[in-house]
Simulated assay, not measured.
Amino acid sequence: MKIFDTLADLAACVGQEVAVSDWVTITQEQVNRFAEATGDHQWIHVDVERAKQGPFGAPIAHGFLTLSLLPVFFESSFDVRGSGMGVNYGLNKVRFTAPVPVGSRLRGRMTLLSAEPIEGQGLQMTWQVQVEREGVSKPVCVAESLVRRYP
């Protein structure tokens, strides 16, 4: 885990890959809980036997489940000692570029694209996050995430 003392120290990294997160394993229980929370019970996610016969040969995680892991990736990869709070501000772009079979291990690779001062002595940062699946060269998700951090 990388540690930054201040928001200014983090802002100095614009244009650079800042961090790579820990691996997170996608479980069927997690997929099922996500289906319950969102109402998305598509068989390719929750019907294990049918999914084995489907186009991916196994159940796959919801794209939005993969996207919902972005805070986990940020949390496990770096910290800013001089920041007391961070909030998700939105997304500019999201693409689900490959399936995530249950049992996959994922991690996020974060590149800081921009950092702009905002009210309250904070920063609005634009991050490119590539979600990687272990053992596969193509990312499973590429997202441009907006995050606001405050002292």
Rank of each mutant, 00 (worst) to 15 (best):
R133T: 08
V100Y: 03
L70H: 07
I60A: 00
K52G: 05
Q121G: 09
G108E: 00
E132M: 14
S76A: 11
A61H: 05
W127G: 01
V142K: 03
D79N: 04
D22T: 00
G90F: 11
I44N: 04
E116D: 14
D9C: 01
L113T: 08
Q42H: 15
T27Y: 13
G103R: 09
T25P: 01
S137V: 14
E75I: 04
Q42I: 08
I26L: 09
C141V: 02
E119M: 01
N88K: 05
P99R: 09
D79Q: 15
E119Y: 08
D40S: 15
S21C: 13
P139H: 12
R148Y: 07
A58R: 09
F74H: 10
G57R: 10
D40M: 12
L69G: 00
Q121M: 04
N32Y: 11
D40Q: 14
A115C: 06
G84E: 06
W43L: 07
L146S: 01
D9R: 01
V18T: 07
Y89P: 02
S21F: 04
M85Y: 10
N92C: 12
M125F: 03
L106W: 00
F96K: 03
P151F: 01
L112A: 01
C141K: 03
L65R: 09
A11P: 05
T126F: 00
T38F: 11
A143D: 08
T6R: 06
M85G: 04
Q30K: 07
V140R: 04
H41C: 05
Q130D: 13
G84Y: 07
V94T: 11
